[in-house]
Amino acid sequence: MNNTLDISRLGKVIKHDAMSFFQNLSLALIVLWAIPVAIWLFSSLTPGDGHMETLSRISIIGTLLKIIIILAPARLYKYCNDSRKGIGYAMLPASSLEKFISMVFYCVIVAPVLYLAGALAVDSVLTLIGGPYEGFAITEYFDKLAQLKHFGVESGFMLDGDYPVYEDYAKILSPTVLVLSNILGLLMLSTVFMFGNMVFKKRKTGKMIGILVLLFIVFMIVMVNYVSNHEQYFQQMCEENAAAFFKRLIYFTSRASLVIEAVVSVVMLWLTYYKIKTQKY
């Protein structure tokens, strides 16, 4: 018997977890799908133009997608590390790897994809009905990516409106980098909260958000200190060639964030697997 990975047994674990998927996540999905409907209704009923930019809708869907990613692990695998309620999960005759793969499948893939598909479907239906929504969010996202100039301007990547500089940014922030950055960012978010779900026993999501806020504050303090300690250098750089400096800065941060997101995701996935394997009850 293969005690590490058996495809038929993995299928059983996926089926087992599927049985509680909708039971545990359906309410969150419905509420998050309903939010754009509520916004649409509110905009329709509000006097005035009420027109809503497609990019604002994409941004709302993106935010709600992040919320479902944050909520999914604790909703779907709330008790997996509970010393009493988690015994059934621990004793399920499947390997730690199979349980881990199933957890990743539902938290990282199924929950976000299902939410996104539903949200885009809702958006499309509302656009077809008419009212404040004009243009489909699903097509608009890819249109904007294809015309990165506009995407860069409208999403705030433009820094000073200087055309040659703006062109350079457009080249650095290619659609591939942006899409990869979006996907890796969501993967990192998902894996971080999946790990938090295995580490904390109560108020899992809240504690993980607290830790992330704390890390962000520490990071900001370090960055502010670093910049203030190197103020002269940054000033000199800006005076010499601001455009080139910002170009380098954006290039560096965009690539560094890709690497960090990928590394953090892998580390979080490994730690989650390790916790599943060694969890005591």
Binding site: N3, Q23, R84, M91, S95
Partner: peptide, 22 residues
């Protein structure tokens, strides 16, 4: 080690009744 080969041959019924909504 909680290997499937072991787990499929044991069942533990804890004192506290913990059940699912099913």
């Amino acid at each position: 080690e909680r290997q499937p080969e072991f787990l499929q041959n044991v069942y533990f019924l804890p004192e506290e009744v913990i059940t699912e909504d099913t």
